[in-house]
């Protein structure tokens, strides 16, 4: 049984249809890249999978680990092992990073019938992961993402992923706004998490992230549909010929950026 199976998924925001019939199957252990021009629906797909209420699913099914994913609340999806690394991580003044992450980890652990961690055990557990992401310990006491640089926010997302250990990670344009060093660091963090039990969906506009996180499959999304699927070489084709080589007009699509 596939870990994730998306069938003919349609979604709207307001009265505008953005996803117009997506089909995608992801097995445990696989890394799928979803590429496409701005406005093709990449971010919408990521947010719909995580349960954002802003988008209305108007048709189709999503089965995750044998369950009807669309029937689950966002928090239950997270507890079942879905993690979305946000394109624009939200700043939450007044809630410390440490409090937030400990609360998140303990809710998920509870759901997995694991004992909750106290502050000491929690710190112990995350120290190594912080170092790996080159994150300063002082970030823990700062409010969630507040005053973080763009790169710090993205690293914080991957750090959270490392702590929460999801079964399906969805990375939404994690490469955007990163310089090459930050990109390598983030990619190394992601690669360290690749395993036979874990699947990943990597949403990106550019090929450069995919030379660091090498996918098993590449799908091209245009106007709310997957128009082409292939192996990792498809990303290189796109890099060489652009979306135009596939007959996709980028300018026209850019208008509909969600």
């Amino acid at each position: 049984m596939a870990l994730l199976e998306i069938k003919d998924l349609h979604a709207t925001v307001g009265d505008r249809e953005i996803l117009k019939g997506i089909d995608l199957t992801v097995e445990a252990g696989e890394v799928h890249a979803i590429m496409g021009p701005n406005g093709s629906g990449k971010s919408t797909l990521a947010q719909v999978l995580a349960g954002r209420e802003l988008y209305h699913v108007t048709g189709g099914q999503v089965t995750y680990d044998g369950k009807d994913l669309l029937a689950l609340s966002p928090e239950d999806r997270a507890r079942e092992g879905i993690f979305l690394a946000f394109q624009y991580p939200v700043e939450i003044p007044g809630v410390s990073n440490m409090y937030f992450l400990k609360a998140a980890l303990n809710t998920i652990r509870k759901h997995r019938n694991l004992p909750e961690l106290d502050a000491m055990d929690f710190l112990e557990r995350i120290r190594e992961k912080m170092t790996a992401m080159n994150m300063d310990q002082t970030l823990l006491n700062r409010p969630v993402n507040a005053g973080f640089s763009g790169g710090e926010k993205k690293r914080n997302e991957i750090f959270q992923m490392a702590v929460l250990e999801p079964r399906l990670a969805i990375l939404d344009e994690t490469d955007s706004g990163l310089d090459i060093d930050a990109l390598k660091l983030v990619a190394a963090g992601v690669n360290a998490m690749r395993s036979a039990e874990r699947a990943m969906i990597v949403v990106t506009h550019y090929q450069r992230l995919l030379s660091e996180i090498v996918p098993d499959y590449v799908h091209v999304l245009a106007d709310g549909r997957i128009v082409k699927s292939g192996g990792k070489e498809l990303a290189l084709e796109l890099e060489a010929g652009g979306y135009a080589a596939l007959g996709i007009q980028e300018e026209a699509e850019a208008v509909g950026k969600a």
Binding site: R52, E53, E75, P89, G94, F100, A104, H111, L164
Partner: peptide, 29 residues
């Protein structure tokens, strides 16, 4: 803020707890 609520929920924090966390954060100031 709906986006902040979703962010917390997407990390497994229940809606009620997410609401009280954000409310407390407002008072914390």
């Amino acid at each position: 803020d709906a986006e902040s609520l979703f962010y917390l929920q997407s990390r497994g924090i229940g809606k009620a707890q997410a609401r009280s966390l954000l409310t407390q954060a407002f008072a914390q100031d």
